[in-house]
Simulated scan of single mutants.
Amino acid sequence: MYRLSYAGKTLHDPRLPDRVVTSCDCRLTVSEPGSLACDVPPTNPLSGTFECYDPSREVVLEEDGEEVFRGRITSVKPSVDGTERLTCEGQLAYLSDSLVRPYGTYADESKGWKVTPSRSLREVAAFYVDEHSRHSDGTQAFRVRKNELPDTQVTRSSTQWPKTMAEIEDKVLSGGYQVVAGHDGLGRYVDFLAEGCGDNPQVVEFGETITQFSDVTEAEDLVTCVVPYASYQDGKRTVQLTLDGVEDGEFGSGFHVAADAIMSNEGVRQHGVVC
Rank of each mutant, 00 (worst) to 15 (best):
V273T: 15
W113V: 14
D25W: 09
E266D: 13
S5K: 07
V124D: 05
E89C: 08
V203S: 09
P55V: 00
L95S: 08
V274P: 02
W113D: 11
S23K: 05
T242W: 11
L61K: 11
L99G: 03
D54N: 15
P102G: 10
T209I: 13
P78L: 00
Y53E: 10
E148M: 11
A141K: 14
D81Q: 10
D244W: 15
L222D: 05
S174N: 00
K114S: 12
R101K: 07
F69W: 07
L193K: 07
K111E: 13
S79H: 03
H183V: 02
F206M: 04
S31A: 06
T116P: 01
L173Q: 04
K236N: 11
E250Q: 11
A166W: 09
E66D: 04
A37W: 03
E123C: 04
E84P: 03
C24Q: 14
S31W: 06
P102H: 09
L28S: 08
M165D: 10
Y94G: 03
R119D: 10
C38E: 10
L241C: 15
K236Q: 09
S98N: 12
F206N: 06
L95D: 07
G185V: 05
L86K: 11
R145T: 11
R101V: 02
E32F: 06
E250V: 14
A258S: 15
Q233T: 03
T116N: 02
D137N: 13
D130H: 06
E123R: 13
S264N: 14
G267S: 08
G138E: 10
K146I: 12
I168E: 06
V226I: 13
D191N: 14
K236D: 13
E109S: 14
G198P: 07
P102S: 09
D234Q: 14
S133H: 07
S5Y: 15
I210E: 02
R3Q: 15
S214M: 04
G235W: 08
G34L: 07
V124M: 09
E51V: 15
V273D: 06
T10H: 03
S174I: 00
V257E: 11
S56H: 00
L186C: 10
R70E: 03
T74S: 03
E62K: 08
Q240F: 09
Q240G: 01
L222V: 12
C225M: 12
V59L: 08
L4V: 13
D248H: 10
T74Q: 10
G90L: 04
P117C: 01
R27V: 15
P45W: 00
T217F: 11
L36H: 07
Y232G: 13
L186F: 07
I262W: 06
Y189N: 08
Y177R: 04
S98M: 06
L61F: 14
S136L: 01
G8P: 01
I210M: 00
C197P: 08
F69N: 04
I73E: 00
S110A: 13
M1A: 15
R27H: 09
R19G: 01
S157P: 05
E32Q: 14
R57Q: 14
V124N: 09
G175R: 03
E167L: 09
D170H: 08
T159C: 11
D199Q: 05
D221Y: 10
A181V: 02
D215E: 15
K171G: 00
W161N: 12
A258F: 05
S231V: 01
D130E: 15
D130N: 11
P102V: 10
T49W: 01
E208N: 12
D248A: 14
S96Q: 12
V40F: 07
D184P: 00
E250C: 01
T155H: 05
D25L: 15
H135I: 07
